[in-house]
């Protein structure tokens, strides 16, 4: 298990972004993560192309928002017929030039969308390439309730790396 004790908190050591254990107590469903994700990656304002999604399916009873964001398991990369999902550091990214917008038999979705165990890859009718978290960290930085967190790679025994918040987060 990777834990935030002795890890090196640099984005190159980022393993994934996740919702905190007590996410349901923290998240208020404001959608800031979705809007900033969209606006960081596109020239427009919106939510439809966000790689993180907040759902209110638990309402009205019992309540509590749910979060879907990629856990970087790599299953999509292994199943991609065009080999278009590459591991950069620890993060899987979709290469626009290589993606062929395949279709899984029966569902009409791209294969990566269909095989994703966390249902965290999305499509949008404006573009061929599916949408997936690239670990940029904007959602973690902007969440007004601190409901999201980074998970960093645990270093072996490098005591010189004093844990600190990442200084440079690409916006």
């Amino acid at each position: 298990m990777e834990e935030n004790k002795t890890e090196d908190k640099k984005l190159e050591n980022l393993l994934r972004i996740k919702s905190k254990e007590n996410f349901e107590e923290l998240c208020s469903g404001c959608g800031v993560c979705e809007a900033f994700c969209h606006a960081t990656h596109y020239d427009t304002e919106g939510k439809a192309k966000s790689a993180i999604r907040i759902s209110d399916e638990n309402f009205p009873v019992p309540g509590g928002y749910k979060c879907a964001v990629c856990n970087q398991c790599g299953k999509c990369a292994r199943e991609c017929p065009a080999d278009a999902i590459k591991k950069v550091g620890n993060i899987y990214k979709i290469d626009d030039d290589l993606c062929v917008r395949c279709t899984a038999p029966g569902t009409g979705h791209p294969i990566c969308v269909d095989v994703c165990p966390t249902r965290a890859i999305y499509t949008h009718k404006d573009q061929l390439t599916p949408i997936k978290c690239d670990g940029c960290g904007t959602c973690v930085e902007m969440c007004p309730k601190g409901a999201l967190e980074y998970v960093f790679k645990k270093l072996k025994a490098d005591t010189e790396n004093i844990p600190q918040q990442p200084k440079e987060v690409p916006k």
Binding site: S28, G29, C30, G31, P62
Partner: peptide
Amino acid sequence: NKHGKACGMCPMACGQYSY
């Protein structure tokens, strides 16, 4: 109190969901 419940884009999240 269960959790906060915000309107779109709001960091204040003043709505409170209660049981």
